[in-house]
Design a protein around this nucleic acid. Sequence first.
DNA 1: TCTATGACTCCGG
DNA 2: CCCGGAGCCATAG
Length: 107
Amino acid sequence: MKTEKTFHQKVIETAQQIPYGKVSTYGAIAEFLGSKRSARMVGWVLNSQKNNMDIPAHRVVNRRGLLTGKLHFQGVNLMQNLLISEGIEVVDNQIVNLEKYLWKDFS
DNA sequence: TCTATGACTCCGG
DNA sequence: CCCGGAGCCATAG
């Protein structure tokens, strides 16, 4: 059987494209995949692959820059800590100057 | 096959 | 910007 690239595999590949010090949104990834409305699926995939350390899921936030997935992380402070560690300003579970760090130039 | 669920997003107030 | 409601798509059971 062929293993066609499933949605969640595409999400993984896309998420891995986010460089250090940058972040992206579920909507941006979903849009890149072809369906802007499937942003929920992006989160669903990350949830399924959350044990996969190869995915920088901490660089994926919702449209407002809010760390929606932080509660699903191993540690409640892990996500915010990682972002700050990369030079990203995070206050009250939200990224400051999201536009400045937003990565939407997927290739 | 159908139903339920979700780390979202958009719209109107 | 916050709140409530609706839409959308893929996976699991």
